[in-house]
Design a protein around this nucleic acid. Sequence first.
DNA 1: CTTTAGCACTCTTTTTGTTCAAGTGCTAAA
DNA 2: TTTAGCACTTGAACAAAAAGAGTGCTAAAG
Lengths: 374, 374
Amino acid sequence: MSFDTYELSDRKKSILKAIVEAHIKLGEPVGSKYLMQEGNIPYSSATIRNEMAELEGLGYLEQPHTSAGRIPSELGYRFYVDTLVAQYDATTQEAGQLKKLLSVKQAEIDKILENATKVASAMTNYTALSLRPRPSSITIKKYEAVYLDPYSFIIVMIAGGSDSVKTRNIKLPFSITSDLIKLLSQVLNVFLTGISINEMNISLMVDMEKYLEDNSGEDKKLCAELISITVKGIYETMNELGSEIKFEGLNRLLEHPEYKNLDKLQKMISAIESKEDIIKAVSTIDQSDDETKIFIGSENMVKIMDDSTLIYKNLKLNGKTIGAIGIIGPCRMDYSKVLSTIDRLSEEINNMSSLDALPPGTIIKTEEDDNGKQ
Amino acid sequence: MSFDTYELSDRKKSILKAIVEAHIKLGEPVGSKYLMQEGNIPYSSATIRNEMAELEGLGYLEQPHTSAGRIPSELGYRFYVDTLVAQYDATTQEAGQLKKLLSVKQAEIDKILENATKVASAMTNYTALSLRPRPSSITIKKYEAVYLDPYSFIIVMIAGGSDSVKTRNIKLPFSITSDLIKLLSQVLNVFLTGISINEMNISLMVDMEKYLEDNSGEDKKLCAELISITVKGIYETMNELGSEIKFEGLNRLLEHPEYKNLDKLQKMISAIESKEDIIKAVSTIDQSDDETKIFIGSENMVKIMDDSTLIYKNLKLNGKTIGAIGIIGPCRMDYSKVLSTIDRLSEEINNMSSLDALPPGTIIKTEEDDNGKQ
DNA sequence: CTTTAGCACTCTTTTTGTTCAAGTGCTAAA
DNA sequence: TTTAGCACTTGAACAAAAAGAGTGCTAAAG
């Protein structure tokens, strides 16, 4: 990246570009003769060979073995992608299609992410992933505590921005009244609305305890404990709300010859299944960043994926980051297609009709959970 | 199954058993010589050969090609499993381990299922799956409608038995008041508590409309529409609550030589990813059934999985079916291990300390959801 | 009548050798 | 600076041969 690409002559650039594109298309090493005939390089194979030898010396190309053609190195792909992105003139052919696929009465953020992932995977033929925004950026705009029985209640949290709903079931070591829970509801809404996970601190809890004690007439210790347990639950829930990752099109991995190699495939599936690694890797990306990020080969933070490429972009809806979408595939990836798909997709979502304009009576599905209280 | 296994002599049985076990262990066809030397069959290879030829004639064995040993046919596996299950004397070595793995303050049904799946996959080295009970058996024991703004509210539903919490966000084409939502809450609790999805009918809705109209003084049409939209949402939500399927240990598929065959692997991954097929297949199993079900090869209802085995068992907690767990792998599966693991696991869960006995202050995590209202 | 040793036979796997084609690097000429 | 030509390397493809595994059958032994 910091490599000085300007030392490359125009001819070298065009040869490199042609090699990358041919390799993406064919999946095989490309030779000088092919470039001359099909690659639109107006020089003899000998000249091309000389250039290729130099490009190899510079680290842009690799040769699997003596009598094979060249394949792009990671640096070669990186060069290609960088120039591609620079001249990138969104090939708009498929925009309408995307719109149609996405526009099916989208209501829920989850559904949007899920559909976007499906569409991305289907259109590019690679495995796609989606990620929720990270916990620290989440705030709750409304709380509701629901009384269940003397020893348990449920907190319903509605996230600001995305309007996600998450619930948490809390079981207590002491008994409480339905009225106290109503009051708790009030306390939560007064003190914790709009507060991010980082802003939850002790002094806030002390205030909450005091408020609850004053207005309920309950025992001080009980109030303190109730608040403590409740806030802890909320804290954990907010943490879980963020950074959820989902995959789509796993089976498409198998369609690409690079994953016929069972070792690579195994690595890849393990990486995908463990999730944590990928979340961690992707979490380093600035969440407000609008750029499409491309990690080629060893640039990937997930060591295990070091011969694959991850293309990744934050998704915004009405200006708010609602998550991110990514494509995973071999380094030999149709970058142009993937980039255009992802960009189109994110644009489409960004411009999606505000949900206030939903058809009347729309039922907005939310989510579900279990808790084993009994 | 209805095949008359009693026509087999003891010697044939022991040979068949030895072949199945050797094949499970080695993953390769087994020959007469091997059985004589390693398989603990006290006859000469010639005698064994004769018996094998007969077993093949009876359909219990197959020969990949002339000069290969024999492998068990589906019928052979079925015989093995049936007798295995019959004499099945739970090899208890790993029971303690299971207990430890599961006992980490289990609170949530989801978590129990998830952990059970992980444990099952880890201990057997096969891919495991878990399934929620089906929708028709779910009832809601408590509703709570949460007012959001004049045009939207959220319904919180707490499932009976499993105490799952699910929420649904509803957007209205007309405006409502916070008080009306409170009343709606009441209506839902009065009319829909304990009602299964099959019992929701028109007359119930008419009653609800009437009740709401009488007690709120709102316009009749508005009440009717509110109830209709709400019930529809609840209905859909209950449907979604059931039959959720999750997988664990996908990467372990790759560890078994039968899935080195990319075709099989691809089929398998597709089957797993599409989910619906497997849900449909498994749904035919009686939910209250306590037996461990074993589907070998073409016995599987998912055509695509017709050279794999699915072992499947309902899980109960305090007498209630909370879901099911399954193991998927090649027909050449270590049945003894898998069966014992699944049985242990289900027993362990069944006996799990009632959640009332949870340590005080336990926070019972529930779940989350999105809805794109905005 | 049952079991077993022995052997010919079949079929797969592995090895070996040969040929082929691709693609290169280098040299010398244009 | 470019290009034609050629020797060289190397993997891929194919065929033939060899090795190995396991069987079925026959005939002898218990």
